[in-house]
Design a binder for these strands. Structure first.
Lengths: 110, 110
DNA sequence: CCTTATACCTTGACCACTTAGGTATCCGCT
DNA sequence: AGCGGATACCTAAGTGGTCAAGGTATAAGG
C-alpha cells in the first residue's frame, strides 16, 4: 500500500513535472508519481483525472489521443510553454514552502 | 507581505509544534509561525482560529484564559499528551511527504 | 473464468482554507 | 483630540481540491 493523502495543492506541480519529462498519458502519470516517490504518494484517480482536465483548461497542458505501450487507446498530455513557466514557479514555491515548514518543525532542537 | 497560501493540511502540525514549545495564545501562535518561517508563511486568522477550535475539540490542545504579555485577556493553549503524539506522527508524515515531493521535482536532473 | 492491470470517466460529500467582515482595547503619532 | 496600527478574539459565506465509490471497456495471466 503506502501512500498518504495528498497535501492539497501539490498535485498540479507533480503532474506538470511528470509531463515535462515527456509526452505521457494520464494513467502513466499516476504511475510516474507513485514510482518516483517510491510509493510514498499514491494519487487517487478521482483526484488525478479532474486535475488533468483542470490543467488542460488552463492551457498548461495539451491533449491528443494516441496508443499506449500496451496497444490501448490513451489520452496523451504534452506540456505547453505556459505550463513550463508555471512548473518553474510552482516548483520554486514548493521549495520555499517546504523549507519554511521544515525550519519551523525543527525549532527548539539542539 | 510575503507569505504564500497554505498547502492545506500543514497548518495543524505547525500549530501543534508552536504550542509544544510552551503555553501560547492564538495570536502569538500566528506570529510564531510567521517569525520562525521568516515571513514565508503568514497564516490568515480565518484559518488560524477555526484550526485552534478544531484541535481543541479533538483533545490535542487544552485552553484556558490568561493575561498576555501586553496585559490583555488572551486564550492560552497547552498541548495535551495526545497532541504530542499527534505532533510526532504528523511531523514524520510531513518529512516523508516533503522528501517524496522534492525527490519527484528533482527527477531528470543531473 | 476470474482476477488483476490497464485506461478512461463521473458524482457526491467533506472540509480546510480564503475573503471579508465584526468587536474591543491600547499605543503612538500628529 | 483623533486616527492608524498592533493586539486579541471571533464568525459567515463561498470556493475548490481531494476522497470514496462507483462506472465502462479491453487484455493478460493464473
Amino acid at each position: 500500500m503506502g501512500g498518504s493523502d495528498l497535501f492539497v495543492g501539490t498535485l498540479d506541480v507533480l503532474i506538470l513535472k511528470a509531463v515535462s519529462q515527456g509526452r505521457m498519458h494520464g494513467y502513466a502519470i499516476g504511475r510516474w508519481i507513485r514510482q518516483t516517490t517510491k510509493d510514498a504518494l499514491n494519487v487517487q484517480e478521482g483526484a488525478l483525472y479532474p486535475a488533468l482536465h483542470r490543467l488542460e483548461r488552463k492551457g498548461l497542458l495539451e491533449e491528443d489521443w494516441g496508443v499506449s505501450e500496451t496497444g490501448r487507446e490513451a489520452k496523451y498530455y504534452k506540456i505547453t510553454a505556459a505550463g513550463r513557466r508555471r512548473l518553474r514557479a510552482e516548483a520554486a514555491r514548493w521549495k520555499e514552502y517546504a523549507d519554511a515548514v521544515t525550519l519551523a518543525l525543527a525549532a527548539g532542537e539542539a
